[in-house]
Amino acid sequence: MSAVVLTAFVVYATVAAFWNADYYYRPYISPFYSPCLVAGCHLSAESYTSGRVNVPHLTVLGYWWVISPAILILVFPLGFRLTCYYYRRTYYRAFWRSPPACAVAEPHGSYSGETRFPLILQNVHRYFFYAGLVFNAILTYDAVVAFRNHAGQWGHVGLGTFVLVVNALLLWMYSLGCHSCRHIVGGRLKHFSRHPVRFRMWGLVSKLNARHMQFAWASLIWVALTDLYVRLAASGTIHGGWV
């Protein structure tokens, strides 16, 4: 089951990332393309209602960047999830069959775990966590902006607003429950008693950490659904005031 969902997500995300169109329906932007770091964003994002639209973007790369801007973004959340302790457990079992299940013999002749390249790179997880926080902040901004309507006026609440807000919330719950986050906020301490604030924070993160698996799946599926929703709106497949 895990293998099926992960494979489905990878296939969907790959197609969506290279699609390079229909990722913006004012004010909703797909989480796969936010922030848009390429000058040519507005050339590729089209809206069925207004033709070419000016996608909010930060021009880090000029017009010479012709492939999908999503590629620049997705490497960070992909790295975060790829090195996540929960996902490691899942894909080592589901894909690498190391082991296929508890007490079930694995098919490999030798095993060195995470001691050698490339798996030793799993130790960079906390850096992807830091990057993930930046993206969470940006997606939270996108969720706030989603309270504007298609014409840019505040006060709008559409289904898309709900979708983007839930997306941001789930990503925060997933990120803040991360094992690296738990270590950074207080886990590395020897004396909880001498750091009451960090101990309190560690306790809160530990509560999220206990649900890390659930948030990992929920946020993964929801981020794909969010992209799909924006894509449906931008392509005109769904339309109306409720969008």
């Binding site: 302790y85 490691r88 457990r89 082991p99 508890c102 007490a103 095993y111 775990g113 001691t115």
Partner: peptide, 15 residues
């Protein structure tokens, strides 16, 4: 002591 060999598949916790 081989901590790096553990690939955290959590079977120890399960049993």
């Amino acid at each position: 002591r081989g901590l790096g060999m553990c690939n955290i598949t959590k079977c120890c916790t399960e049993v």
